[in-house]
């Protein structure tokens, strides 16, 4: 079972190598003549007048929080969706298995409507 995952590990290592090798190669081959002007951050020709790591809009946090909530819901849907066909074909659990997930989705929708009404999805 686990040896099926060995090629994937190898593939990830190859991916990392392809991420590292060109930079090493570029560093070896390409010229390297830095000067103060060249190394200054690009700001349309102006001198950079403050650190770029500034305060940013709180809405980005909001999006991140909402994303975590919804992504978790999807993570919960995955196992259910994978066996949904078997649920449908098993008379004993058919309606229970379906209704259970619909209740879950309904709760999600209530939260979604709340976020919408509260203006969390606005981006003006």
């Amino acid at each position: 079972m686990l040896e099926n995952y060995f090629p994937i590990l190898l593939f990830i290592l190859v991916g990392i190598a392809i991420g590292v090798l060109p930079i090493v190669l570029g560093w070896l081959i390409a010229p390297n003549r830095p000067d103060a002007e060249k190394l200054s951050p690009y700001e349309c020709g102006f001198e950079a007048f403050e650190d770029a790591r500034m305060k940013f809009d709180v809405r980005y946090y909001l999006i991140a929080i909402l994303f975590i909530l919804f992504d978790l819901e999807i993570a919960f849907l995955f196992p259910w969706a994978t066996i949904f066909k078997e649920i449908v074909n098993t008379e004993a659990v058919k309606w229970f298995g379906f209704a259970e997930m619909m209740v879950f989705i309904a709760i999600l929708v209530v939260g979604y409507i709340y976020a919408w009404v509260k203006g969390a999805l606005e981006w003006e």
Partner: peptide, 20 residues
């Protein structure tokens, strides 16, 4: 491949090179 890899003066060098 033949162009210089510039690391800006204010940059966090290692993170900057690992990101690509």
């Amino acid at each position: 491949l033949l162009k210089e890899i510039i690391v800006p003066s204010g940059a966090d060098k290692w993170v900057y090179l690992i990101a690509p």
